[in-house]
């Protein structure tokens, strides 16, 4: 029974996510006729003195390739294939606890730097990487400088309750957003090790904890 409810809930969540996050570009599109040449042009357009470990950022996994090919709007079968493969990538913290400290999560959500490379304006080495959640989402009411690329997450826990299933959904979604919504605009924070599993648990707490400012006001 509990499983069934969870499935229904997931479906409902996925539906809202779909409605809010999908690009309105219409039907799936044919493959770009010059894609092979375009890929060559793209690869040859970078400074030769970029170190190899920077250039490796241009590598694409299957999900990236398919999302590009279908302009972020893949047909149902491709979408399903991506989501299944992405689900299988999700890893959890060793202690199994998915709720960390909301105070830490709040910092991660507000922090938008880290990971910029290149020769003109790179981040200082060892700059911690933030989740930059506010770039795209409304969260705590007190922060008015929020973006709208993603749906509002204000009162996330208050609206959904903090059952284990919702906690796990929030963790999984942050770890690998494409497991629920192929080609969403949201990065796959866990898959890329952009955030550690522990950091993700802090963001989960920021969303879920009744004491978190996300669920106040």
């Amino acid at each position: 029974m509990k499983k069934l409810m969870f499935a229904a809930l997931c479906a409902a969540l996925a539906q809202t996510a779909l409605a809010q996050e999908r690009t309105p570009s219409g039907k799936a599109v044919a493959k770009n006729p010059v894609s092979a040449e375009a890929e060559q042009v793209f690869r040859n357009s970078f400074r030769p003195d970029n170190p190899k470990y920077w250039m490796s950022r241009l590598e694409q996994d299957d999900a990236m390739k398919l999302c590009g090919q279908y302009k972020d709007n893949p047909p149902a079968a491709v979408r399903q294939k991506i989501e299944l493969a992405q689900k299988a990538t999700i890893r959890y913290p060793v202690d199994g606890k998915l709720m960390g400290k909301w105070q830490e999560g709040e910092k991660i959500a507000a922090h938008g730097r880290g990971g910029h490379i290149g020769f003109i304006q790179p981040d200082a080495p060892m700059t911690p990487r933030g989740g930059n959640c506010y770039a795209c989402h409304q969260l705590a009411a007190k922060e008015v400088a929020y973006g709208t690329i993603g749906p509002s997450l204000h009162h996330f826990g208050k609206l959904r309750g903090n059952s284990d299933d919702i906690v796990k959904y929030a963790y999984d979604k942050i770890y690998n957003s494409n497991a629920f919504n192929a080609c969403t605009n949201m990065p796959r924070f866990g898959l890329h090790n952009w955030l550690t599993p522990e950091e993700i648990t802090h963001v989960v707490a920021f969303l879920m904890d009744p004491e978190s400012p996300v669920n106040k006001d």
């Binding site: 950022r57 241009l58 694409q60």
Partner: peptide
């Protein structure tokens, strides 16, 4: 439309 990098 080409995605890559640590933020997709």
């Amino acid at each position: 439309y080409r995605r890559s990098g640590p933020q997709d």
